[in-house]
């Protein structure tokens, strides 16, 4: 199978190489929840609040954070599975809802979900599932395309094409979901905990496959996971979320060696040690993450942060570069000399 054959229907590059493939600005999504016995009292989950980031062409952006931090909601907003309340999503220079329709966006952006079984129609054969989207979008030869992709993701078409999702293993189902995403010849693939449910040995196989496909088809990935080791392995840059906000973005090597935000630092220290002679002695944080309904004021992390001062409760820290022009950004008063935090600008971590 030649590369050009599969990529024949890929959308043209409109913005040129310097245009980020995706720009997200001030994305916001609140979910109303009904409380009280009679469902009268209304509360709001601030799932995603003022999230901004860019994804360059050909890079992999890893998104990490704990449950409730808004990483999956962000993913669903990006491909239009949820409607945003506010903010802009700009795909290759075109504004979603403006010059770009949802239908066009979904040609270019595809998603792979965590639950490989729930994301496949149980009544469709594997071949029909993979061909479905391409057929709806009117792409040429959807079935031939599906069979080629099955071959490419390591599922022999003659053996698997007519099987149903319940007849194959979890690792194989996730390969089907990847093939289905690729059937649209997308340029951006959002992988939302796509390998998290797999056993470790199978996870490594799927990660190898994802790396190969990225190279072969020139894909851009947004890779969402709670497993920092996996994110480090596959990503170029890492974005850290906490309670609906971005707290830090940086190239992988930078963030791996020096985390700027106290939350990022805690998250990294919470990784189990792999050295039996040097086990973790103190948990980096106490308690669970707060509820995203009525999140804390100011910096949302101030309730759990050991550097918290009055300014942290009062003022929301903005995401800004650590030094002028740096691509390492953090939202913390410690890194803003003008913030009024007594330790601002000092190296507080030991």
């Amino acid at each position: 199978m030649s590369k050009t054959e599969t990529l024949a229907d890929t959308q043209p590059d409109k913005g040129g190489p310097a245009q980020p493939l995706l720009i997200v600005r001030n994305l916001q999504k609140y979910f109303p929840v009904r409380g009280g016995i009679f469902g009268g009292k209304k509360a709001v989950v601030q799932a995603v609040d003022g999230v901004s980031f860019e994804v360059k062409k050909g890079e992999t952006l890893g998104i990490v954070g704990e449950s409730g931090c808004g990483k999956s909601t962000t993913a669903r907003l990006l491909i239009g599975l949820l409607d945003k309340d506010k903010g802009e999503i700009i795909y290759d220079g075109q504004d979603l809802g403006g010059t770009l329709s949802l239908r066009e966006l979904r040609r270019g952006v595809q998603m792979v979900f965590q639950d490989s079984y729930a994301s496949l129609n149980p009544r469709l054969t594997i071949e029909a599932s993979i061909a479905f989207g391409a057929r709806i979008q009117g792409l040429s030869d959807p079935v031939g395309r599906a069979r080629k992709l099955m071959e490419r993701v390591g599922l022999a078409p003659d053996r698997f094409a007519q099987r149903y999702p319940h007849e194959v293993s979890g690792g194989q189902r996730q390969r089907i979901n990847i093939a289905r995403a690729l059937a649209m010849s997308p340029r951006l693939v959002v992988l939302d905990e796509a390998v998290s449910a797999l056993d470790k040995s199978v996870e490594a196989q799927v990660l190898n496959l994802l790396a190969d496909l990225r190279r072969e088809f020139g894909l851009t990935y947004i890779f969402i996971s709670h497993d920092l080791n996996v994110v480090r392995y596959i990503s170029d840059r890492i974005l850290v979320m906490y309670l609906g906000e971005v707290v830090e973005i940086a190239p992988v090597d930078d963030i791996w060696t020096s985390q700027a935000h106290p939350y990022t630092r805690s998250l990294f220290s919470a990784m189990p040690s792999m050295d039996p002679d040097n086990r973790t002695k103190e948990p980096p944080l106490a308690g669970d993450p707060p509820n995203p309904i009525n999140p804390p004021s100011g910096c949302r992390f101030h309730t759990r942060c050991r550097f918290s001062e009055d300014v942290c409760k009062a003022k929301v820290p903005l995401l800004h570069p650590l030094t002028a022009g740096s691509d390492h950004l953090a939202a913390c008063h410690l890194h803003d000399i003008s913030s009024g935090h007594s330790k601002a600008g000092k190296d507080v971590f030991e």
Binding site: A204, N208, N229, Y233, I234
Partner: peptide, 21 residues
């Protein structure tokens, strides 16, 4: 299993995955 933990896997290097299931 230890290799698949990715604890010390070089970024972007091919993983020495156990084949099959």
């Amino acid at each position: 299993l230890l290799a698949a933990n990715l604890h010390d896997a070089a970024r972007g290097a091919r993983l020495n995955a156990i084949p099959g299931a």
